[in-house]
């Protein structure tokens, strides 16, 4: 076997990406402001393939509260989290391809024994969103998406704690799924549709796919100077 710690393509990739990274790029708030203004247009360009129009409105209104936009960094909307989730629904993951989905199902099992619903992610979103919008209509005479930000926070808190009873599934199961997928989309490589412009990585200081710190481990306690790169070679 050849001892090949670094392929030519990798070296070229790193050289190119490093050259373009400004030294101040680590937390760059100015770059952040740019992505915030550019984001709505990018988001509008995406047409969901799985979610229906009312579901899409719900999803955007929900993730906007889970990770809101503010001066610290991008919100889930501008980061493209809804697009990420919609794309995940169309793949093996959304169809439950990674989960054991044979019955019988015992949804009342102790929660420490894990997910026991018969819904794959696609079915879980569809069933839960309809049920939550129904609940909001009864309580607030409005869809979830049309509620104020404070009211949406209230509904999300109640789902998280299980204070809302939904017809076909435990509210806590859906909330956990939604929050998990939201954070995945926020922090995954941008090639999956979220983390647009690597803005979430820039916010926290994660260098993404750089994946080579042989030099910096010898510099304990020193701030790492380079901004992130993505798998497809974008730099920020």
């Amino acid at each position: 076997m050849s001892n090949k710690p670094s392929s030519p393509s990798r070296r070229v990739f790193l050289r190119q990406s490093m050259a373009a990274v400004p030294a101040v790029g680590l937390l760059g708030t100015s770059a952040l402001a740019q992505t915030q203004s550019a984001a709505p247009a990018a988001q509008a360009a995406y047409t969901p393939r799985y979610f229906t129009a009312p579901e899409w409105e719900f999803l955007q209104a929900a993730v906007d509260r889970l990770i809101p936009a503010d001066e610290h960094g991008p919100g889930a909307l501008e980061a493209g989290v809804p697009e990420f989730i919609d794309r995940e629904m169309e793949g093996a993951y959304g169809h439950g391809g990674f989960w054991y989905m044979q019955g019988p199902f015992a949804p009342d099992t102790h929660p420490t024994l894990g997910y026991q619903l018969r819904f794959n992610p696609r079915e879980l979103y569809r069933t839960a969103i309809a049920a939550i919008d129904d609940w909001c209509q009864k309580q607030h005479q409005s869809t979830f998406a049309a509620l104020s930000p404070e009211e949406r926070d209230g509904v999300l808190h109640a789902l998280e704690k299980g204070d809302i009873t939904l017809d076909q599934l435990p509210a806590t199961s859906f909330f956990a799924q939604l929050l998990t997928n939201t954070k995945e989309g926020y922090f995954a490589d941008p090639m999956y549709g979220g983390n647009k412009h690597m803005a979430a990585w820039k916010m926290i200081g994660f260098p993404g796919a750089r994946a080579d710190f042989a030099d910096w481990v010898e510099q304990p306690g020193k701030v790492y100077p380079l901004g992130p790169v993505s798998i497809e070679g974008d730099k920020a």
Binding site: L66, H72, G73, D153, E160, T182, M203
Partner: peptide, 15 residues
């Protein structure tokens, strides 16, 4: 686990 306070903490803690 979520919201503005989570995001601020994530940003300030990560490094």
């Amino acid at each position: 686990g979520w919201g503005a306070a989570w995001k601020k903490a994530a940003k300030e803690s990560y490094l």
